[in-house]
Computed example of a mutant assay.
Amino acid sequence: MTTQTAQAACKADDGQPLLSVQDLKIRIQMDNGVMQAVDGVDFEIKKGKTLGLVGESGCGKSLTSRAIIGINPKECETTGVIKYDLASEGSASDPIDLLSLDPKGKRIRSIRGNKIAMIFQEPMTAFSPMYTIGNQMVEMIRIHRTKNKKEAKKIALEMLGKVGISDQEKRFDQYPHEFSGGMRQRAMIAMALSCNPELLIADEPTTALDVTIQAQVLELMQSLQREFGMAILLVTHDLGIIAEMCDEVAVMYLGKIVEQAPVREIFYNPKHPYTKGLLKSMPRLGGEKSVRLDSIEGSVPMPIDMPPMCGFYERCTDRIEGVCNARSVPKTRISDDHSVRCFLYSDQQRGEAQ
């Protein structure tokens, strides 16, 4: 796909989301009850745009992202709808529901790694230690793009060059343990993009990297997004990365999206107490060294057989007794592109609860 073709594809039919997740729920049966790991998640990703999914460890971000391509463990009972637009194939049919497909079937395997690719949090465990980097890249390219070995190797070498890995011929025949952490992440990006995906899922792509390499990887992702016109779902806990990379942000807490809005709206007009707490805990350049950063008191409760109430109730300084702990919080729309799950912004709902 050329740059011009990619840009044209992004501009076409901007109103139709590339991916639409509706009421996604993931339950896991535990020894002491049922864990509601993901509880009614909704979001959309438009073609060529970046959505940031942000929240603390254990809030359900990775399970949500992996559910899209059907690679969660079999213990995860997943329900909901995940619609994917196949318009790029020239299909006039409605978007396909990825959750309705057999996770090991031919249809989802033609989409996974091809239309939708994923960068995993730790490439050392994502790559097989038994095969060379080049062998693993060529295998995927031959599955999705071409059966010709020479052509597949040529594509792999070109992608390694695009992500800034020099001496590609030598690196092609090396094993993952012979790469540094930053180079492994670059190789993972090269592998993910080797089939020109329409959607890239990046699950904590810079967690294990130092600040310099982190900046290089983020710049690389932005550059390749402009070149290929792909959409990105960026899963992270780092609000600094969110500010730099994303068009829209979904803030996740205890399996629910508690606030969603464009990135500037989240940073300059946050509504949910949890979002405000995250922003206040961020260090700022030029800030006084003697000033302590704010922290969110308490800890995240275990989502096992939880009663209908706000999951942030125990940690919230703005909680309303008899309201926030009385029933589940509905979504309130602040504006056309800003929604929040909080009784503070719904007088009608608060009155009904009382």
Rank of each mutant, 00 (worst) to 15 (best):
L344P: 09
M30G: 01
G182P: 10
S128N: 15
I241F: 02
A190H: 03
V263R: 11
A152P: 01
V300Y: 00
T64Y: 04
T207L: 06
V263W: 02
Q29H: 12
R226D: 13
F120T: 10
V300A: 14
I28A: 09
Q36H: 15
S299Q: 12
L18N: 04
P301F: 04
K25G: 00
Y274C: 10
M159F: 11
L24C: 09
E77M: 12
E288N: 11
K74Y: 05
V251H: 03
S93E: 15
G134C: 09
Q4D: 13
Q22G: 01
K106F: 02
I257M: 03
M140A: 14
E288K: 14
M282R: 00
Q168Y: 10
S180K: 10
I320E: 15
S281T: 07
K271S: 08
L224T: 07
M230A: 02
V163F: 08
F267A: 05
G182V: 08
S110I: 02
N196T: 12
P307R: 09
K162H: 10
L98K: 09
R333N: 13
E248C: 05
L99M: 11
P307V: 01
V235D: 01
D210F: 09
K11W: 02
I141R: 06
V249M: 03
E204C: 11
S335A: 15
N114F: 11
A8W: 00
I111W: 00
G60K: 12
G70I: 07
E314R: 14
V38D: 07
N196C: 14
T332H: 10
I82D: 07
S62G: 10
Q136D: 02
Q168H: 10
P270G: 08
R284K: 13
G311I: 00
V251D: 00
S62V: 11
D94C: 06
M245N: 01
M282A: 02
M230D: 00
D94V: 07
K106C: 01
I141L: 11
A231P: 05
Q214F: 03
I266K: 09
G15V: 07
E169G: 08
K115D: 15
T78R: 04
S100M: 06
K83M: 11
S328C: 05
D42T: 12
T132Y: 03
L285M: 10
G255T: 04
I133N: 05
E352A: 14
G15I: 03
V38G: 13
H177N: 12
L239Y: 03
T64E: 10
V81E: 15
V211T: 14
R107W: 02
